[in-house]
């Protein structure tokens, strides 16, 4: 894993002006005209990130943990009903309201543009959960439990969170780290498409696109200029890293 300290990471970015490479800026584009609401992304995220199984009773209490959820709404009256689907996940806001309110720095912004949650620092105050306008943050109300043999399928690259800790989408930071390490060893930048989070990888209609916005050749850098673009709750000024595309006319 990366052994650099916070200071070095921050100072590393400051050296860009002298000509060293720009930092990464990971962003996601979600094309709502392509989303079918199949929820493959939800399942893939659960599998990749060791999200705890909640069960029927807990889900009825509103405690089911989903790092990405599909918000389904109905438009129109029968028989002209249409379903619209919106995948909502942590928006990795540039001006994240969840970060300054954590009293122990368990939530902070990495130089790569990710909103990071430091599990072993979290003491469970839950202010960040309140302050996220997208309700993207989840809390571990109990210890996780996997009945045998489900524990065999846990991802060894991702920690298992115990009770009392906030968690949320990390853009599959373990995959990003792996991609960056490989690229660093080969002395190059991460190429477009080399790093895909689980949800992006599993989407059958390619509605999710992930990449480095600071790489001018990446798909994401081109798609964020699409005229169908909008941000969720844009007027709050959170500057999300997720761009939605939808034809409105």
């Amino acid at each position: 894993m990366d052994n650099r300290t916070h200071k070095e990471e921050i100072q590393g970015t400051a050296q860009n002006k002298t000509g060293s490479p720009k930092p990464y800026k990971w962003e996601l584009v979600i094309d709502l005209d392509r989303c079918t609401g199949c929820e493959a992304c939800v399942v893939a995220c659960h599998a990749e990130n060791n999200v705890r199984i909640s069960g029927e009773e807990e889900a009825a209490q509103g405690r089911a943990i989903n790092w990405i959820r599909i918000e389904r709404s109905w438009e129109g009256e029968y028989p002209d009903i249409k379903a619209t689907f919106m995948p909502v996940l942590c928006q990795h806001c540039n001006n994240a309201p969840c970060e300054p309110v954590c009293p122990v720095y368990a939530s902070y912004h990495t130089p790569d543009g990710l909103n990071a949650q430091v599990y072993n620092r979290c003491i469970g105050v839950r202010y960040c959960g309140n302050n996220c306008p997208y309700v993207a943050r989840q809390f571990n109300w109990f210890d996780p439990q996997w009945d045998a043999p489900l524990a065999e399928q846990l991802n060894p690259d991702v920690t298992v969170r115990m009770n009392g800790i906030m968690e949320k989408c990390t853009f599959c930071v373990q995959r990003i780290r792996k991609g960056k390490e490989t690229a660093h060893q080969e002395g190059r930048r991460v190429r477009d498409g080399e790093v895909t989070p689980a949800c992006v990888q599993s989407c059958p209609s390619s509605a999710l696109v992930f990449g480095d916005r600071n790489d001018p050749t990446s798909r994401v850098a081109k798609m964020v200029k699409n005229d169908r673009r909008f941000h969720l709750l844009e007027d709050l000024g959170t500057e999300p890293a997720i761009t939605y595309l939808k034809r409105l006319t």
């Binding site: 921050i10 994240a96 970060e99 902070y108 912004h109 500057e239």
Partner: peptide, 9 residues
Amino acid sequence: LYPIRTGGK
């Protein structure tokens, strides 16, 4: 001494 970026603050 220990600068950590949080939000836009």
